[in-house]
């Protein structure tokens, strides 16, 4: 279902938050949440975004919907530049990209019925309340996400977590977006419910041709749902390639550590495996390490006898020659990590 028309092109995106600045005071420094990130999402494609807490995933999502103001860079949505637009100029484009959030409890207004929740975006964007066949749009949306249209008069607290997440997805679908940013959409749900929501997202993608930016912690779910995957560390993408290639042939030492840390539900596999245990904690984005952001914890750097370049020069994300796919890695020694 993917075709190669990009719906989103992000180029050199940086988002920095000032620390301790007020109206008059000057910023004491910056939280460098996202640094020169570039990627493309094609129509009907799912790009997975993984990385540790604080690595900048949500910040990227929020920059695309312009909740966060980029410090520099470009965001092209369906060919329109979003960076620098006023809220008014943004409004017609805002329809094209929607968000689904982690917490199905706090992201729905408890005082609104499901009908009110779903009608609101239609009214905001001057969209008809009936579809071309004359069917009520609310009914259509509820059917689409697998909920009984009779539920339209109920309130959010009358639903389970998984059902609330379906309502959140229906709300995002109401304005017929080209791209939905899903920020940890299943991590608040029970394991037995997660698969229901993953299947729903996949079937909607097949039927409606929507593209997703799928942000998640669970690397197995990300492999399952994504066409391509970007791995983030401390505000930068360190590796980006097809889902199959990333999991079969990871090149960046951080990706390797990440994958080796995921336990699988098979005792035999678990007893036999060797984990790459990373030393220390993730550094603070207010005080970024010099050179390669990963150098303070990188096992490959240690193995190579601490080459100077790791701590002096930031490695760019560049194509690593691979037989199968485009495979981009940000490491000076990507060739040696076999």
């Amino acid at each position: 279902m993917t075709n190669n028309e990009p719906v989103l092109i992000v180029e050199n995106l940086s988002v920095h938050f000032p620390i301790g600045s007020g109206l008059v005071r000057k910023a004491k420094g910056y939280v460098k949440a996202v640094n020169s990130v570039s990627f493309v999402i094609n129509q009907g494609e799912t790009l997975g975004l993984v990385g540790e807490s604080g690595s900048g995933k949500t910040t990227i999502g929020r920059a695309i919907v312009r909740v966060n103001d980029p410090h520099e860079g470009s965001i092209l949505l369906d060919g329109h530049e979003l960076v620098g637009l006023s809220p008014k100029e943004m409004r017609p484009l805002r329809r094209k990209v929607q968000m689904v959030f982690q917490d199905p409890y706090s992201s729905l207004d408890p005082r609104q019925t499901v009908r009110q929740i779903l009608v609101e975006p239609l009214v905001t964007h001057n969209l008809p309340l009936k579809n071309a066949q004359g069917e009520d749009r609310v009914d259509e949306l509820l059917n689409l996400v697998g909920l009984d249209p009779a539920f339209a008069s109920r309130y959010p607290h009358q639903f389970s977590g998984g059902q609330r997440q379906r309502i959140g997805i229906a709300r995002a679908l109401a304005v017929e977006p080209d791209l939905i940013i899903c920020d940890e959409p299943i991590s608040a749900l029970d394991v037995s419910i997660q698969a229901q929501v993953v299947n729903l997202l996949e079937s909607l993608k097949k039927r409606l041709g929507i593209a997703y930016l799928f942000i998640a912690h669970d690397l197995a779910v990300v492999r399952h749902i994504s066409d391509r995957v970007a791995v983030m560390y401390l505000g930068g993408i360190v590796e980006l390639t097809s889902s199959t290639e990333l999991y079969e042939n990871p090149r960046h030492p951080y990706t390797r550590a990440l994958l080796s840390a995921v336990p699988v539900p098979d005792s035999v596999v678990e007893k036999a495996r060797k984990r790459i245990i990373l030393q220390g904690d993730i550094p603070s984005p207010t005080n970024m390490p010099s050179g390669c952001a990963f150098h303070t914890r990188c096992p490959l750097r240690t193995m190579l006898g601490n080459p100077e370049i790791c701590s002096t020069e930031r490695p760019e994300l560049k194509i690593y020659p691979s037989k199968k796919d485009d495979h981009q890695v940000a490491c000076h020694f990507a060739d040696e990590s076999s």
């Binding site: 394991v191 037995s192 997660q194 698969a195 993953v198 690397l219 197995a220 779910v221 492999r223 399952h224 999991y247 994958l259 995921v262 699988v264 539900p265 098979d266 596999v269």
Partner: peptide, 8 residues
Amino acid sequence: LRSIPRLD
């Protein structure tokens, strides 16, 4: 066990 995707 059947509902979860697995890396192995």
